[in-house]
Protein backbone atom coordinates (compact mmCIF):
# COMPACT_ATOMS: atom_id res chain seq x y z
CA UNK A 1 0.00 0.00 0.00
CA UNK A 2 2.76 2.32 0.94
CA UNK A 3 4.54 1.80 -2.37
CA UNK A 4 1.56 2.84 -4.39
CA UNK A 5 1.18 5.91 -2.25
CA UNK A 6 4.78 6.96 -2.77
CA UNK A 7 4.52 6.50 -6.53
CA UNK A 8 1.41 8.55 -6.85
CA UNK A 9 2.62 11.20 -4.46
CA UNK A 10 3.66 14.75 -5.27
CA UNK A 11 1.59 15.77 -8.28
CA UNK A 12 3.13 18.70 -10.09
CA UNK A 13 2.14 22.09 -8.85
CA UNK A 14 0.54 22.96 -12.17
CA UNK A 15 -1.71 19.94 -12.13
CA UNK A 16 -2.85 20.70 -8.61
CA UNK A 17 -3.54 24.29 -9.54
CA UNK A 18 -5.53 23.25 -12.58
CA UNK A 19 -7.56 20.82 -10.51
CA UNK A 20 -8.25 23.48 -7.94
CA UNK A 21 -9.52 25.97 -10.48
CA UNK A 22 -11.83 23.37 -11.94
CA UNK A 23 -13.10 22.38 -8.51
CA UNK A 24 -13.72 25.93 -7.42
CA UNK A 25 -16.03 26.62 -10.31
CA UNK A 26 -17.81 23.35 -9.75
CA UNK A 27 -18.42 24.09 -6.10
CA UNK A 28 -19.54 27.61 -6.64
CA UNK A 29 -22.18 26.44 -9.01
CA UNK A 30 -23.56 24.18 -6.32
CA UNK A 31 -26.38 26.28 -4.95
CA UNK A 32 -27.26 23.79 -2.21
CA UNK A 33 -23.95 24.20 -0.43
CA UNK A 34 -23.74 27.93 -0.77
CA UNK A 35 -26.72 28.28 1.54
CA UNK A 36 -24.99 26.71 4.55
CA UNK A 37 -21.97 28.23 6.25
CA UNK A 38 -18.86 26.07 6.81
CA UNK A 39 -19.57 26.15 10.56
CA UNK A 40 -23.05 24.73 10.08
CA UNK A 41 -21.74 22.06 7.77
CA UNK A 42 -18.92 21.13 10.20
CA UNK A 43 -21.25 20.95 13.19
CA UNK A 44 -23.55 18.56 11.36
CA UNK A 45 -20.75 16.10 10.58
CA UNK A 46 -21.20 12.79 12.35
CA UNK A 47 -19.00 10.52 10.26
CA UNK A 48 -15.65 10.99 8.58
CA UNK A 49 -15.70 10.58 4.83
CA UNK A 50 -12.93 8.80 2.91
CA UNK A 51 -10.84 5.99 4.40
CA UNK A 52 -9.93 6.80 8.02
CA UNK A 53 -9.05 3.18 8.84
CA UNK A 54 -6.05 1.20 7.62
CA UNK A 55 -4.92 -2.42 7.51
CA UNK A 56 -1.72 -2.55 9.58
CA UNK A 57 -2.48 0.21 12.06
CA UNK A 58 0.39 1.30 14.28
CA UNK A 59 -1.82 3.77 16.07
CA UNK A 60 -5.57 3.23 16.21
CA UNK A 61 -7.84 5.98 17.54
CA UNK A 62 -11.51 5.20 18.23
CA UNK A 63 -14.16 7.71 19.29
CA UNK A 64 -11.60 10.14 20.68
CA UNK A 65 -13.16 13.15 22.41
CA UNK A 66 -11.04 15.84 24.07
CA UNK A 67 -12.35 18.43 26.50
CA UNK A 68 -10.76 21.51 28.00
CA UNK A 69 -12.84 21.91 31.15
CA UNK A 70 -16.38 22.23 29.76
CA UNK A 71 -15.35 23.04 26.22
CA UNK A 72 -15.04 20.15 23.82
CA UNK A 73 -12.10 20.51 21.43
CA UNK A 74 -12.17 17.20 19.54
CA UNK A 75 -15.32 15.24 18.59
CA UNK A 76 -15.54 11.49 17.96
CA UNK A 77 -12.38 11.04 15.94
CA UNK A 78 -11.70 7.62 14.39
CA UNK A 79 -8.37 7.32 12.62
CA UNK A 80 -5.68 4.74 11.94
CA UNK A 81 -2.04 5.52 11.24
CA UNK A 82 -0.34 2.64 9.50
CA UNK A 83 3.22 1.55 10.16
CA UNK A 84 5.92 3.59 8.36
CA UNK A 85 3.33 5.94 7.04
CA UNK A 86 3.30 9.73 7.10
CA UNK A 87 -0.09 11.16 7.94
CA UNK A 88 -0.62 14.90 7.64
CA UNK A 89 -3.22 16.60 9.82
CA UNK A 90 -4.45 19.81 8.22
CA UNK A 91 -7.20 22.29 8.95
CA UNK A 92 -7.83 25.87 9.99
CA UNK A 93 -6.37 27.23 13.24
CA UNK A 94 -8.14 26.07 16.37
CA UNK A 95 -9.64 23.00 14.70
CA UNK A 96 -8.18 20.63 17.28
CA UNK A 97 -5.45 19.02 15.20
CA UNK A 98 -2.61 19.93 17.60
CA UNK A 99 -4.72 18.91 20.59
CA UNK A 100 -5.42 15.62 18.89
CA UNK A 101 -1.73 15.10 18.08
CA UNK A 102 -0.75 15.73 21.69
CA UNK A 103 -3.16 12.99 22.79
CA UNK A 104 -1.07 10.42 20.96
CA UNK A 105 1.75 10.48 23.51
CA UNK A 106 -0.31 11.86 26.38
CA UNK A 107 1.37 15.26 26.32
CA UNK A 108 -2.04 16.63 27.26
CA UNK A 109 -1.47 15.16 30.73
CA UNK A 110 0.62 18.26 31.45
CA UNK A 111 -2.47 20.45 31.01
CA UNK A 112 -4.57 20.18 34.15
CA UNK A 113 -7.94 20.97 32.61
CA UNK A 114 -7.56 18.66 29.62
CA UNK A 115 -9.56 15.40 29.57
CA UNK A 116 -9.38 12.71 26.90
CA UNK A 117 -12.12 10.11 26.31
CA UNK A 118 -12.18 7.21 23.86
CA UNK A 119 -9.49 4.70 23.04
CA UNK A 120 -6.06 5.20 21.51
CA UNK A 121 -4.05 2.04 20.91
CA UNK A 122 -0.40 1.72 20.07
CA UNK A 123 0.21 -1.75 18.62
CA UNK A 124 -2.99 -2.89 20.30
CA UNK A 125 -2.04 -1.48 23.73
CA UNK A 126 -4.37 1.14 25.20
CA UNK A 127 -2.19 4.15 25.98
CA UNK A 128 -4.82 5.70 28.28
CA UNK A 129 -4.83 2.63 30.51
CA UNK A 130 -4.61 3.91 34.07
CA UNK A 131 -1.83 1.41 34.84
CA UNK A 132 0.31 2.55 31.94
CA UNK A 133 3.48 4.51 32.68
CA UNK A 134 3.80 7.49 30.35
CA UNK A 135 7.60 7.52 30.47
CA UNK A 136 8.19 4.45 28.26
CA UNK A 137 5.20 5.48 26.14
CA UNK A 138 6.80 8.82 25.34
CA UNK A 139 10.05 7.05 24.58
CA UNK A 140 8.14 5.03 21.95
CA UNK A 141 6.14 7.99 20.66
CA UNK A 142 8.48 10.95 20.32
CA UNK A 143 7.46 14.50 19.61
CA UNK A 144 8.89 17.47 17.71
CA UNK A 145 7.39 20.84 18.60
CA UNK A 146 6.35 23.91 16.70
CA UNK A 147 9.12 26.10 18.06
CA UNK A 148 12.63 24.64 18.20
CA UNK A 149 13.26 24.00 21.90
CA UNK A 150 16.84 22.79 22.39
CA UNK A 151 17.82 22.43 26.02
CA UNK A 152 20.34 24.94 27.39
CA UNK A 153 23.07 22.32 27.05
CA UNK A 154 25.72 21.45 24.46
CA UNK A 155 24.70 19.99 21.11
CA UNK A 156 26.11 16.63 22.21
CA UNK A 157 24.24 16.65 25.52
CA UNK A 158 21.01 17.62 23.77
CA UNK A 159 21.14 14.51 21.62
CA UNK A 160 22.53 12.33 24.42
CA UNK A 161 19.79 13.43 26.81
CA UNK A 162 17.21 10.80 25.80
CA UNK A 163 19.60 7.81 25.64
CA UNK A 164 20.98 8.82 29.04
CA UNK A 165 17.67 9.13 30.88
CA UNK A 166 16.43 5.86 29.43
CA UNK A 167 19.72 4.06 30.07
CA UNK A 168 19.93 2.98 26.43
CA UNK A 169 23.73 2.86 26.34
CA UNK A 170 26.31 1.88 28.90
CA UNK A 171 29.56 3.08 27.45
CA UNK A 172 30.69 6.48 26.32
CA UNK A 173 31.73 5.08 22.93
CA UNK A 174 28.21 3.74 22.34
CA UNK A 175 26.74 7.08 23.30
CA UNK A 176 29.08 8.81 20.85
CA UNK A 177 27.84 6.45 18.19
CA UNK A 178 24.16 7.11 18.96
CA UNK A 179 24.76 10.86 18.92
CA UNK A 180 26.58 10.71 15.61
CA UNK A 181 24.06 8.48 13.90
CA UNK A 182 21.12 10.55 15.17
CA UNK A 183 22.73 13.75 13.97
CA UNK A 184 23.50 12.10 10.62
CA UNK A 185 19.89 10.94 10.24
CA UNK A 186 18.73 14.46 11.06
CA UNK A 187 21.13 15.81 8.40
CA UNK A 188 22.95 17.96 10.90
CA UNK A 189 26.18 16.01 11.46
CA UNK A 190 28.27 17.73 8.80
CA UNK A 191 27.33 21.17 10.14
CA UNK A 192 28.00 20.55 13.81
CA UNK A 193 30.56 17.73 14.04
CA UNK A 194 33.35 20.16 14.92
CA UNK A 195 31.43 21.96 17.65
CA UNK A 196 29.50 19.31 19.50
CA UNK A 197 30.36 20.96 22.80
CA UNK A 198 28.99 24.39 21.91
CA UNK A 199 25.49 25.22 23.19
CA UNK A 200 22.51 23.99 21.18
CA UNK A 201 20.80 27.35 21.58
CA UNK A 202 23.56 28.95 19.49
CA UNK A 203 22.46 27.21 16.30
CA UNK A 204 20.24 28.81 13.66
CA UNK A 205 16.48 28.16 13.80
CA UNK A 206 16.55 25.45 11.13
CA UNK A 207 19.56 23.77 12.71
CA UNK A 208 17.89 23.92 16.12
CA UNK A 209 14.81 22.18 14.73
CA UNK A 210 16.94 19.46 13.14
CA UNK A 211 18.75 19.15 16.48
CA UNK A 212 15.38 18.61 18.13
CA UNK A 213 14.56 15.95 15.55
CA UNK A 214 17.95 14.30 16.20
CA UNK A 215 17.22 14.43 19.90
CA UNK A 216 13.89 12.70 19.30
CA UNK A 217 15.22 9.93 17.07
CA UNK A 218 18.17 9.26 19.40
CA UNK A 219 15.69 7.46 21.66
CA UNK A 220 14.69 5.21 18.69
CA UNK A 221 10.97 5.88 18.96
CA UNK A 222 8.50 3.98 16.80
CA UNK A 223 6.27 6.94 16.12
CA UNK A 224 7.26 10.60 15.72
CA UNK A 225 4.66 13.31 16.22
CA UNK A 226 5.45 16.66 14.60
CA UNK A 227 3.48 19.75 15.56
CA UNK A 228 4.02 22.28 12.75
CA UNK A 229 7.77 21.60 12.77
CA UNK A 230 8.49 24.16 10.04
CA UNK A 231 6.26 27.05 11.10
CA UNK A 232 9.20 29.02 12.53
CA UNK A 233 11.59 28.26 9.68
CA UNK A 234 12.49 29.83 6.34
CA UNK A 235 11.85 27.94 3.05
CA UNK A 236 15.39 26.54 2.79
CA UNK A 237 15.36 25.11 6.30
CA UNK A 238 11.83 23.86 5.63
CA UNK A 239 12.99 22.03 2.50
CA UNK A 240 15.71 20.30 4.52
CA UNK A 241 13.25 19.18 7.19
CA UNK A 242 10.85 17.93 4.52
CA UNK A 243 13.59 15.86 2.90
CA UNK A 244 14.37 14.53 6.33
CA UNK A 245 10.75 13.53 6.93
CA UNK A 246 10.75 11.60 3.67
CA UNK A 247 13.87 9.70 4.77
CA UNK A 248 12.60 9.14 8.29
CA UNK A 249 9.38 7.60 6.97
CA UNK A 250 11.40 4.54 5.94
CA UNK A 251 11.95 3.69 9.60
CA UNK A 252 9.37 5.64 11.58
CA UNK A 253 5.64 6.19 11.64
CA UNK A 254 5.00 9.91 11.47
CA UNK A 255 2.03 12.15 12.21
CA UNK A 256 2.56 15.76 11.21
CA UNK A 257 0.39 18.79 11.82
CA UNK A 258 0.94 21.49 9.24
CA UNK A 259 -0.61 24.70 8.00
CA UNK A 260 1.14 24.47 4.68
CA UNK A 261 -0.91 22.48 2.21
CA UNK A 262 2.05 22.23 -0.14
CA UNK A 263 4.00 20.67 2.70
CA UNK A 264 1.24 18.19 3.42
CA UNK A 265 1.11 17.34 -0.29
CA UNK A 266 4.89 16.90 -0.49
CA UNK A 267 5.61 14.82 2.61
CA UNK A 268 2.55 12.78 3.51
CA UNK A 269 1.01 9.55 2.29
CA UNK A 270 -2.39 10.20 3.79
CA UNK A 271 -4.02 13.46 4.77
CA UNK A 272 -6.63 14.06 7.46
CA UNK A 273 -8.69 17.25 7.33
CA UNK A 274 -10.00 18.64 10.66
CA UNK A 275 -12.65 21.32 11.01
CA UNK A 276 -14.00 22.65 14.34
CA UNK A 277 -12.83 19.54 16.17
CA UNK A 278 -14.40 17.11 13.67
CA UNK A 279 -12.33 14.87 11.47
CA UNK A 280 -13.97 15.72 8.15
CA UNK A 281 -12.08 13.62 5.65
CA UNK A 282 -9.18 11.17 5.47
CA UNK A 283 -7.83 9.99 2.16
CA UNK A 284 -4.69 9.35 0.16
CA UNK A 285 -2.88 12.66 -0.02
CA UNK A 286 -3.14 12.84 -3.78
CA UNK A 287 -6.88 12.30 -3.67
CA UNK A 288 -7.36 14.95 -0.97
CA UNK A 289 -5.51 17.54 -2.98
CA UNK A 290 -6.94 16.72 -6.39
CA UNK A 291 -10.40 15.31 -5.83
CA UNK A 292 -11.51 15.59 -2.20
CA UNK A 293 -14.70 13.82 -1.19
CA UNK A 294 -16.02 16.50 1.16
CA UNK A 295 -17.04 20.03 0.23
CA UNK A 296 -15.32 21.52 3.31
CA UNK A 297 -12.01 19.90 2.41
CA UNK A 298 -12.36 21.25 -1.06
CA UNK A 299 -13.17 24.72 0.17
CA UNK A 300 -10.16 24.65 2.50
CA UNK A 301 -7.55 23.40 0.02
CA UNK A 302 -8.76 25.78 -2.65
CA UNK A 303 -8.21 28.61 -0.20
CA UNK A 304 -11.80 29.75 0.19
CA UNK A 305 -11.37 29.97 3.97
CA UNK A 306 -8.95 29.08 6.72
Amino acid sequence: MQDTVIESKAPTAKAVQAERTKKTTKTESNAMNAKRSPTEIAESITETVGKPLAQNAKLAMRDVNVYYDQKQAVFDVNLDIAENQVVALIGPSGCGKSTFLRCLNRMNDTIDICRVAGSIQLDGMDIYDSKLDVVPLRARVGMVFQKPNPFPKSIYDNVAYGPRIHGLVNRRADLDEVVESSLRKAGLWEEVKDRLESPGTGLSGGQQQRLCIARTIAVSPEVILMDEPCSALDPIATAKIEELIAELSQNFTIAIVTHSMQQAARVSHRTAYFHLGRLVEVNETEKVFTNPDHELTEAYITGRFG
Partner: peptide, 12 residues
Protein backbone atom coordinates in the same frame (compact mmCIF):
# COMPACT_ATOMS: atom_id res chain seq x y z
CA UNK B 1 8.35 24.45 25.54
CA UNK B 2 11.57 23.26 27.22
CA UNK B 3 9.57 21.20 29.70
CA UNK B 4 7.43 19.83 26.87
CA UNK B 5 10.55 18.92 24.93
CA UNK B 6 11.96 16.96 27.84
CA UNK B 7 8.63 15.33 28.69
CA UNK B 8 8.15 14.44 25.03
CA UNK B 9 11.38 12.45 25.17
CA UNK B 10 9.99 10.41 28.05
CA UNK B 11 11.58 12.19 30.99
CA UNK B 12 10.06 11.82 34.40
Amino acid sequence: SLRDGALGLGST
